[in-house]
Amino acid sequence: MSKKNRSYIYLLVGLVAVVGLSFPLEASVNSYDMRIIINIGISMILAASLNLINGFTGQFSLGHAGFMAIGAYTASALTTLVFGSAEGVTQELLFLVVLLAGGITAAIAGLLIGIPSLRLKGDYLAIVTLGFGEIIRVILQNIEPLGGSLGISGIPRYTTFIWTFGILAVLIFISENLMRSTYGRGFLATRDDEIAAESVGVNTTKYKVIAFVIGAFFAGVAGGLYGHYNSLIRPLDFGFLKSVEIVVMVILGGMGSTWGVLLAAALLTYLPEALRKIDLFGVSLSDFRMTIYSLALILLMIFRPQGLLGNFNPKEFAGRFKKNGQSKKSKPAVS
């Protein structure tokens, strides 16, 4: 397996595994558990897409749910209002088209929002993205054809295990390849030190906007998946709380570590379900869910701000082994 096509082989293996797993899962897992699994997949897409902005480029966005909302509304509206009576198109093709449309609309919104706001730094950027997220929500509430605050209902349930995790595999492929390339290094350099990055010719604004647009695209796709699984979407579903949930996944997983972030997304989506089943003195622990959640967040920041997985850096980790005698391996194949 050569280095050149390694990522493609991983992608292929991933996609085959997703398809392969789907059959036994569809057959044996009940619909309640399946819902949890799909929700985990959607959370993973959201978290990994925010990780591109937040973890890799260091731009703190608190409005990711806004992009999810745009994608969800675009895709769902297309399915229910426009393509509802389309004939001669397979359901799969239609779903692909509406998901892409949702992603692209969200990406355009990301571009429009990103260009002016990414000049801001730190908590100012956090606040302005929060503001944009809220504005998107309020605007959706006021568009009557899209159901106003009642939202869109009766969306056909097209989202499946294969769609969700297949898209996740593609996103992982993209973000891992990006990180090992010209663009990824530009992202990380921008995160580490913007002034230094500019001083070696990196157009930091361009890199930040690109990361923002890609992140918004996948948040939009995740929104489409969400809408076509829940069959009901309301502006309320995409509020500030949702944005914070996604941010917490990225932070808990350790900003910039794709695998850590995916793990955190799974954990944080599953945990509330697990807590729901535990009774303590007659009170369901799920009532305490958000109290525990917020306390955990505070304690995490105080004691382990680098996230649960810490500064796990596969490259550094691998580098430790290479030092012992075989440093040639990291060198390009010079004869």
Binding site: F60, D123, V244, V248, M301
Partner: peptide
Amino acid sequence: PKLTVLITAIGVSFFLEYT
């Protein structure tokens, strides 16, 4: 870092709201 404190503040905010 500022963002660590900002996230903590969000945590405190949630704690008060949900408790």
